[in-house]
Design a protein around this nucleic acid. Structure first.
Lengths: 250, 250
DNA sequence: CGACGTATTGACTCGGCTCAAAACCTGTGG
DNA sequence: CCACAGGTTTTGAGCCGAGTCAATACGTCG
């Protein structure tokens, strides 16, 4: 099979993804053949999880906000995901409860749309694929459970501190500079707090742990101070590796 | 294989469980041979998820509270589970993050301890077993996601109202009487609120929807009133089947 | 430079938590 | 059958964290 540049990009993307990386090119061929590349502007909605859509998606570049819409039209943010993330796959075994998820691009974005039937074939034909999917799913659930924990027992400054630690490039050395991904309103929404509260809570962290805010960068002077500010209230083994932002599937 | 009465009870239990029900007796034989029956008093701890314990458990009778313990010794309730529920199985593919879950009996309880290796063999040898496990896991995650939603956008009275609806024997007729399972302090803990708040919130529901509290029974005069009190704030399709308390695995 | 979106600050409200006391239940032994 | 002890549930008073609404400051892109 002769591949176009776009298909090669997809192949590379699949190889870097935790779900597909263990598959060889032959197994990936049906995906390359069928997958559909979609370019989106900022602020577009991508339909997923609705009855007709028997597809999952993988992000090549850009950023997508996943949210849920309630019956009275209110909405709340589930997560913000980027390159390599897969969404729409949790309907693979049919569960109607998932109908209300909304994906919104928050940057110009390129995604690939893959038929769920092709994924289902992989489950049947490729050894370990189902197990691998289960593994990813279990990992994601764990992170969701942690989310429940944090929303229950951490206050706003602690939740933000945890977010910063997760996004820290280095876990064990300080000072270290974290560049805040996407904007503060979105981060606040993901953490389930208002932007005003976010702003104030950042001040509290600053005073409590000596972390400096410089525009969209954040300088952590003493990472251990930040850890002790939040991690004792968490159930993860201390010190946790702060890797709880690994690959999730939706 | 000649089976004892206890083993027959286990067999029946497995047949009634969503995870094992599709397996025939031959496939279940290794479980019957190896599983270990454990009787516990009230208020005992059952070690799970710790490194040495390569087991999962299924409850034959009684009630168990699952909770997590934070690094500073605080704890919070994850769920309260009973007959047929499986816990300890989410470590099947190894994920160290799960180390801090605690199971506590809240009634005299009988559980069966099953080696995870036997489950792993089922994954290898029995068609559809892995897929079935994945299915259950996806369903459980969905319910966890719903939990996050409810903790984010429902207030205390609404959370309780939803709990009552879930435990309603009949979904579409009223008046109907709900008998409150386990005690109010525990329910409050499961919902992530204090018992005092629970008590007050119950009064609010009573006034808003005309629900009567009679000891540990609760008479819902108009179930639609109760539904409209809470469900419009939820993302599930309305009217939801209030079945979101189905089999979960932990 | 002006305009629009983003971020911060201030003043106020309110839901749920805390601590403490009272009321209610349930089982036990005299 | 009653008295008492232990646990559970309710009620009260006060506090505090986060939400709300509104005004101001900051950034950045035309």
């Amino acid at each position: 099979m002769v591949k176009s540049g776009q298909q090669l990009a997809l192949l590379e993307l699949l190889h870097s993804s935790e779900l597909f990386s263990h598959l060889n090119n032959k197994a990936l061929e049906p995906i390359l053949r069928q997958a559909h590349r979609i370019r989106c502007e900022k602020n577009r909605f991508i339909k997923i999880y609705c009855d007709e859509s028997q597809y999952c998606h993988i992000i090549e570049q850009g950023e997508i906000m996943l949210s849920r819409v309630t019956n009275d039209g209110d909405s709340y943010v589930i997560d913000v995901i980027d390159r390599g993330c897969i969404f729409g796959i949790t309907t693979i075994l049919e569960d109607s409860l998932y109908s209300q998820v909304l994906a919104t691009t928050i940057k110009p974005t390129i995604i690939w749309r893959i038929s769920l039937n092709i994924i289902r074939n992989l489950m049947k034909q490729e050894d370990d694929f189902t197990e691998n999917l289960l593994h990813l799913e279990l990992h994601t659930r764990l992170l969701q459970d942690l989310e429940i924990e944090h929303r229950t027992i951490l206050n706003a400054p602690q939740r933000i501190a945890c977010f910063l630690l997760v996004h820290c490039p280095a876990v064990n050395q300080s000072p270290v500079t974290v560049s805040i991904p996407y904007n503060k309103k979105l981060i606040a929404a993901k953490l389930g707090i208002r932007q005003e509260t976010f702003s104030r809570a950042l001040q509290i962290i600053k005073h409590a742990t000596g972390t400096e805010v410089i525009g969209s960068k954040l300088k952590i002077k003493d990472i251990n101070k930040l850890k002790s500010y939040v991690c004792h209230n968490c159930s993860l083994q201390y010190p946790c590796q702060h890797n709880h932002d690994g690959a999730r599937i939706y």
